[in-house]
Amino acid sequence: MTTTTLKAEGLAKRYGGVQALNSVDFECNSGEVVALMGDNGAGKSTLIRILCGATKPDSGQIVIDGSVRVINRPQDAVENGISVVYQDLALVGSMDVARNVFLGHELRKFGFVRISKMREEAKVLLDQLKIKISSTKLQVESLSGGQRQCIAIARAVRLGSDFVLLDEPTAALGPEQQANVLRIVTELRDSGKGIVIISHNIDHVLAVSDRIVVMRAGQVAGIRNTKETTRQEIVSMIVGDQSFVKHNLQNQSTELKGE
């Protein structure tokens, strides 16, 4: 399987007096899970919003497979194979599972929405992702948070995205549901998707990610391979423990950026 790379180069974004992002470089390959960590206000969500076309950067560019892509709207991102999953901003509770999976991209024939075809295909898709929902006719608001998160992910998958961005996919979920979401993240990675996941939960990040990008004050504070780092190191990078960072600089000076 060929590797596709999603790159962001020199992204900057200012909101009034706040420099939300300051020359950020970021990279995610297909078949890997990159975790974005950092305190509130570190710039993680701004980065995700730029990648998915919801926010326009002041400067910088997005490069996929070596060519610069213009992503000004969410639609542009989808066309370039990037889709984003927001936990509560993705689904319509009063509509059923199948309609939510196909939201905005309904199957049609002679102008009529093909609801039974959509239900069939949604069922197949959910089975593929091993998402257990008894019926695609169920209203989404009757489902658990974990199931809803899975449906939102399934929709991103159905759009054929190479890269799926997940903003806090395990927040506000019970342990069992969290495990389920993480399992799907792993399965997507194994099927060759590139996954970018924002999370505050270091256990989840250590469990599923291949690389961890820590952001602080709008900059990339450091990048680590998950296998070669420790919880201690990541936490120190998040909080900006200077003694640790300095100590670290001496050992692995190449890993730190944007200081």
Partner: peptide, 24 residues
């Protein structure tokens, strides 16, 4: 009940932000 227009109406009324995010 059957058109894309109708489907969009329900989606917008149900969750405007989700509808917008889905490209409606």
């Amino acid at each position: 009940a059957k058109s894309k227009f109708g489907s969009d109406l329900y989606a917008i009324g149900g969750n405007k932000v989700a509808a917008q995010n889905a490209g409606i």
